[in-house]
Amino acid sequence: MTEVPLMEAIRLTKHYRIGGFFGGTLHAVDEFDLTLHEGEIVAVVGESGSGKSTVARLFAMATQPTSGEIRFHGRSLKGIRSRRDLLAYRGQVPMVFQDPFSSLNPVHTVGYALDRGLKLHRPSLSRAEREAEAARALEAVGLSPAQETMAKYPHEMSGGQRQRVGFAQALSYHPKLVLADEPVSMLDVSIRIGVLNLMVRLCEEEGLSFLYITHDIASARYIAHRVIVMYAGTMVESGPTEEVLHHPVHPYTRLLLSAVPDPRAPITVGAADIGEPPRVIDPEPGCRFRWRCPLAIAKCAQITPALQPTSPGHQAACHVTVSASAAA
């Protein structure tokens, strides 16, 4: 593809110094690469501590990368210096948060929250335009009648409705890409699907792109075109969703898929792997999954595997399985 991608990450890395003078360096994200086009939903899947939320925070410019670069419409985010540019960028790439109970101010109405966001991110609009824009966004996420919703306080709404307000806020800025960090994990089971369907509809009808951060690979499959699997701060596999799900290459992806509860399928994973998280403070070279990996060989402890293509658009970082699947 020759068109300029909407969003690109190149060897994006974020390290945190922890524990003072004698502490170490926590590798939250190491060399994360991403190309995201308009109208695409990409899911980043991983367990807690895998670095998936740090990726979202880096894209939101809530934190600065240690090294590497993010490009939006081909232009590096390093060029954004003024507050005005930053607000404009965040209007184009807003974030929807995990917890709809704490992301809205309880003492203000929904209308106020939307209005305030618009004042910040689209300062050129008049009061009447802002109100019209807020109403349009609320209708688009299914919170109609909009006038009634705007007069409500967060406590008067259910979790699902509040999360829709979060999406309406993002939508009112006319964004290009929405960073959705676990937007459904705090919601009741019966209303999760409604919010996921909303994301699909916004993608299909408004051409909106999503970076969907989740621990739930089943919901990633439900909405995402492509999926990136993260483990201990590194990408271990990425590719078209159905391809990754039906032909997982990395042993961690395979473990993850076998552990997903599916009442219609028999149990396939034993209690052998108890899901212990890995060390990411001053990690030594080598694959970070090797301690849990049933296929690990000597090389895995010495050389960090790089992402390598296994089939078109599909890549994985594993010394053992990648060469095997390429040979097959």
């Binding site: 259910s158 979790g159 699902g160 409705q161 009741d188 089971v189 019966s190 209303i191 999760r192 699907i193 409604g194 996921l196 369907n197 690979i217 089943a218 919901s219 499959r221 439900y222 159905e242 799900l245 898929l257 997903v260 599916d262 219609r264 399928a265």
Partner: peptide, 24 residues
């Protein structure tokens, strides 16, 4: 029925789900 239909499947065919309208 609605609850069971609220979980996207990981292994089976990919189908559009509706969940349950409204809230508890």
């Amino acid at each position: 029925q609605g609850l069971i239909e609220s979980f996207p499947s990981i292994h089976g065919p990919k189908v559009r789900l509706t969940g349950i309208p409204g809230a508890p």
